[in-house]
Design a binder for these strands. Sequence first.
DNA 1: GTCTATATTGTGATAGAC
DNA 2: GTCTATCACAATATAGAC
Lengths: 202, 202
Amino acid sequence: MKEERSKTESIILNAAKKVFIRKGYDGSRMQEIADEAGINKALLHYYFRNKDTLFDAIFLEAFASFIPNIGITIMSNIPINEKLKTIIDTYIDMLTANPFLPPFILQEINRNPQRIVGELQGRGLNPELFKKVLYSEIGAKSGKSIKPEHLMINIVSMCIFPFAAKPILMGFVFNHDEEKFNNFINERKQVIYEVIVKSLEI
Amino acid sequence: MKEERSKTESIILNAAKKVFIRKGYDGSRMQEIADEAGINKALLHYYFRNKDTLFDAIFLEAFASFIPNIGITIMSNIPINEKLKTIIDTYIDMLTANPFLPPFILQEINRNPQRIVGELQGRGLNPELFKKVLYSEIGAKSGKSIKPEHLMINIVSMCIFPFAAKPILMGFVFNHDEEKFNNFINERKQVIYEVIVKSLEI
DNA sequence: GTCTATATTGTGATAGAC
DNA sequence: GTCTATCACAATATAGAC
């Protein structure tokens, strides 16, 4: 049985999430997290031995959100284009709810790449199996077809990149108009789905 | 006339580039840059007043590489699909030569978004004009067509994202096999071009 | 221009009272 | 559990000799 999480612990975790996700590990200060939580540094160290421990608690949860479990969808019994539509919707919904995740995760994953090792376990993710299933299904629809790796990476690229590069897009494309960006994202599910389906020549 | 850059200054800039691009501003130490350059910290400060000054010298050049001037291509007189092919090739070539740029630029742009303001000047980039040109050319080829913003962002997303998320792909898709990743990138120019062309229903 | 030494401030972490 | 005070060391930056 998991211990009940104390109220203070939750406050700390929320504050740490806010700071770490916006500034990354290197850019975050224990003092700022304490301020955000309305407590002092000593209490942070009472609940979490050190900065690394606190950061790991945040990162692991964030990373889990960032890699949604699309295995159920891929292995399900619906037509391939419905699978792809579901996967795209899943990603865009996750990103709309957590727009700051992409820069945070990409930054931290590059800072400490070996953290990835073993993150697949217990999440029902088996890329080799997914590849096989996708390969048979897109091969059945079109002649010489796109490889599953390219297909999947095309999807997540088009979903995630606009959030990772938002400040660039805001400056170069949307003229610092937040509403234009939101409209763009709202159109995106449909746009990506059409691009992907056409790429399969269904 | 620009002053000639001294030998030591070049050594410092090369060292700083190496460190900053791999570790970002917050993760980099002046000491590490000095070590990398084979000099001491004091000399760094002699050539560059402080960390910020040195960083800016690196960032501005890196950012310029990261945003290739595709204006010439867009405004040129060749058919739309050749324009798109040239743009894709330009990006993939830039990224192959500088695979560490995406995580670095995305990280720093999110750390300090206002740096973008005014980065367009003097680079021949006029997004509004590009939009108009692309709109007329893709509208001429297909009926109700994809918006130019989506088209362009689809291209750069599919080009850049695999480099930004390389550690994740290495872990989840390529089983930590560097050669598989390189093969994947080699296939990518053609794959992206086909996806983009099909999305235009040409 | 380049170095050693040092000042100064920032930051993670701990001691100990309450 | 929570706080104040403080330690120990890391990091940017400067002074001053050569």
